[in-house]
Simulated assay, not measured.
Amino acid sequence: MGREEKTPAEIRTTDKLKIQKILGEAGYIVEMGNGSVPTVVCKKREDMSKDLAAIRKILKEQRYEGSFGVRAPRKTDEIQVSESEETSEMMDDMVAAAG
């Protein structure tokens, strides 16, 4: 029995979601980009080439042959992280004051 070959047009959404979950469990930040392409957001621009090699290895192990992306963080990504950290700190302060 040969391995089932899929062309990029035949990659299903469930395959993409499975890869998104696997990469997320591996510690990567994954978003579904334009056209529902799983895109890994690297923590630092300098890490992109190292992360790309590791991501390709994971995708090869999973026999995923669809499209994927890797991008550097945007300034807006950093703002969202900072805002979520501030919100978390504010919630902790509120709980401590109430308790």
Rank of each mutant, 00 (worst) to 15 (best):
S82H: 03
K50C: 06
T76C: 03
M91Y: 11
K75C: 09
L59C: 09
N34R: 15
L59H: 03
I58K: 11
P73V: 12
E86Q: 13
D51I: 03
E46H: 03
E85A: 06
R74Y: 07
G27I: 08
F68T: 01
R12L: 12
R45N: 06
V70C: 09
K57A: 15
E31R: 11
I55K: 06
Y64L: 02
K75V: 09
I22D: 00
Q62C: 08
R56I: 14
V40Y: 01
I55Y: 07
S82W: 04
M90R: 13
E85H: 10
V30R: 03
E78F: 04
K57C: 12
D15Q: 15
S82M: 08
E61R: 10
V70A: 04
K21G: 03
C42Q: 00
G69I: 02
P38G: 06
R3G: 07
V81R: 13
T87S: 05
K6V: 06
E5G: 00
S67Q: 09
E31L: 12
G35I: 08
D77K: 10
L52K: 12
R3F: 11
K57Q: 15
P73T: 09
V30K: 02
E89Q: 12
I79K: 05
M91I: 14
V30I: 13
Y64H: 02
M32D: 02
M48E: 06
A53E: 13
R3M: 13
A72L: 03
I29M: 04
K75M: 15
R3D: 07
S88E: 15
K50Q: 13
Y64K: 00
M91N: 08
K43C: 00
G33M: 03
